[in-house]
Design a protein around this nucleic acid. Structure first.
Lengths: 132, 132
DNA sequence: CTTCCTGCAAAGAGTTTGCATCAAA
DNA sequence: TTTGATGCAAACTCTTTGCAGGAAG
């Protein structure tokens, strides 16, 4: 909503070259690869500001680590509770509901996350092996 | 899938008396209120085991804190990025998709999370105030 | 000049791990 | 006895904060 700072613009620029949601720490290293010497704290502060304006979105993993991405990279996931492996899924039956919620609750919705958790085929096998 | 340990059973018992998703640390205190003197590390280890068997589900907040709940308490949320306030929503258009994914990817899906992020009515007001 | 941004280092929160002890079968 | 569970404290990871210096208008 406000003007972007130099760091924020550099972060957005680098993020446009990334296809995967990325952690703050990885972004920090990515920035150094682009010869932008930015402190890690500044990365966190900038991402926080961008998040508040809906310019980046955040997905927090069960590990506590947050992954940042541009809104158009939004994908949903099928995540294995055991190995942590994650499959992207394209289907999204949520769009209409989002419109309704926006009106009903007077929220300004920037984005949503949809995650399925369970066991992937491999880990279902391991599960049985453990039980034996 | 395996037998439950004493700690795991105590945790499940206490969780049945709770209506809200609860952090590991709050559960730890809750257990002490029930005269179960359990170490915090054991609470984490037990929750992790229960999670792997799909007996509890986890929602990790942007703060990195994880909230645990029994599967039947599953609710979806509309969360404000600024104040962190959260509204529960009942609608869930995802059930059919879940069945399809389960078959298509051969996952054993235990549960899913659906979260909407944006600004609540109050924080939309504050936003404008800041810009002035 | 004044305000806000930035970097560094230290602090903080939540979670995990090492290890000795304890309970269960 | 043997295996796995538990408690405590230390360690770890990710993130936030305090503060002094620096860029921007």
């Amino acid at each position: 909503m406000n003007g972007r700072t130099r760091s924020q613009e550099r972060i957005l620029k680098v993020m446009k070259g990334l296809t995967q949601p990325t952690s703050a720490q990885d972004l920090h290293m990515e920035l150094r690869n682009h010869e932008y010497s930015i402190g890690l704290a500044t990365v966190y502060r900038s991402l926080d500001a961008l998040k508040l304006d809906g310019l980046v979105q955040v997905r927090t993993l069960p590990s506590g680590e947050s992954l940042y991405s541009l809104p158009q990279e939004d994908r949903h996931h099928l995540t294995c509770l055991r190995c942590g492996g994650s499959i992207s899924i394209e289907e999204c039956p949520v769009h209409n509901l989002e419109q309704e919620l926006q009106q009903h609750h007077k929220f300004r919705i920037y984005y949503h996350t949809l995650e399925f958790f369970g066991l992937c085929p491999d880990c279902q096998g391991q599960e049985e092996a453990v039980v034996e």
